[in-house]
Design a binder for these strands. Structure first.
Length: 311
RNA sequence: GGUCGGUUGGAUGAGUGGUUUAGUCAUCGGUCUGCAAAACCGGGCACAGCGGUUCGAAUCCGCUACCGACCU
């Protein structure tokens, strides 16, 4: 049994992760690692419902607002950033809470992501242009030649996947599939995962209200300030893309708000779909988080006590 | 009482005598190890009811019901 435990608190957007995680971290006397791919950016506090100043004063948060939207970031970088930070956190507490809704980021920390080279900008650009000029079929064809194994299993209709695979093939000169192990990396700490959830109707209600609150808090101005940077990936985000469409005159304000609500609901469902597949996931209501974690931690102690002593 | 118009899936709303009845919104399910709040895939007794014409009707005809407009 590892001396340290990472407690992952996740769940659909708007379910109430932030408050629950803060209560948990206060109780355990530990810090919180943010696992939300958009709260990472400092210019998006309102639209991403990032923990407020007051909330961050209660518990120290890591990786909230620590990047500029212009900076590229990814799940792989998150993995290494978190792994680099953890040792110092273990010094003050045997438990650390990681809270956020970005499934891939959480997986990257819990299981690891296969080593993949960075893609040279020139290659990324070339592949992007090929997709744009020659179409998806051309990219599919290239992938079939470079990596028939991956070609036969990938969702060929998904441009992002095809594009990425081709990029990696071109970058490395070897088939993308040979770099994919699918193996979980061992971690020098235990992991307990909890997904918060409430009834669907209640969740959607919370989401709809939260979007309206964001508008009251100034989401429009926040998006307005980002408008010149709208092409950045960090801004290909629910709440911003709809506002940009509104600014461009593609839809009226009311429609944009409704669209944000809708897309947020869709995102929440996607998160639930993802977590449902995870057998290591524990589920509870936000208000039951503390009790649930207590239970899980004591269970772990009992299990380990039952193990025969190491020789 | 009469004339005319309408009745399409959860909502809205096109449409046409013939294997699949659009679209939009809403909703449900799924995929996903590198831009992931991204990208992608899929699902739903729909044509008011009854009868008739027809090889075939949601599409044509008749009656019934309901809604609306107008007339007396």
């Amino acid at each position: 049994m590892n001396p340290h435990t990472l407690i992952v608190v996740t769940g659909p957007t708007g379910v109430g992760k932030t408050a629950a995680a803060i209560a948990l971290a206060q109780r355990l006397g530990c810090d919180i690692i943010n696992a939300d791919s958009r709260q990472i950016y400092r210019q998006l506090p309102i639209g991403t419902a990032a923990p407020s100043r007051e909330e961050q004063a209660l518990v120290r948060h890591h990786f909230v607002g620590f990047k500029d939207v212009a900076e590229a970031y990814s799940a792989a970088q998150f993995e290494s950033d978190v792994l680099a930070l953890l040792p110092s956190l273990w010094q003050q507490s045997s438990r650390v809470v990681m809270c956020g809704g970005s499934m891939l980021y959480i997986d990257a920390v819990c299981r690891g992501i296969d080593q993949m080279p960075d893609i040279a900008p020139a290659i990324r650009q070339a592949v992007k242009e090929k997709l744009r000029d020659e179409g998806l079929a051309a990219l599919q064809e290239e992938l079939r030649e470079l990596d028939p194994a991956y070609w036969s299993q990938v969702d060929l209709k998904n441009p992002s996947r095809v594009q990425h695979a081709v990029e990696v093939c071109r970058q490395t000169g070897v088939p993308f599939s040979t770099l994919r192990t699918g193996c979980a990396k061992p971690r020098p700490f235990d992991i307990v995962k909890v997904c918060l959830n409430v009834e669907r109707e209640q969740l959607f209600d919370r989401i709809n209200h939260r979007v309206l609150r964001m508008m009251d808090e100034g989401l429009e101005a926040e998006a307005q300030a980002m408008y010149p940077l709208r092409h950045l990936n960090a801004l290909n985000t629910v709440g911003y893309k709809e506002m940009f469409a509104y600014f461009d005159g593609l839809m009226d304000r009311e429609t944009a708000i409704a669209r944000i609500q809708k897309n947020t609901r869709v995102y929440a469902k996607k998160q639930l779909t993802w977590h449902k597949k995870d057998d290591t996931m524990n589920w509870c209501r936000p208000e039951d988080l503390l009790a649930t974690v207590d239970n899980l931690l004591s269970l772990r102690v009992m299990e380990s006590a039952a193990e025969p002593p190491a020789p």
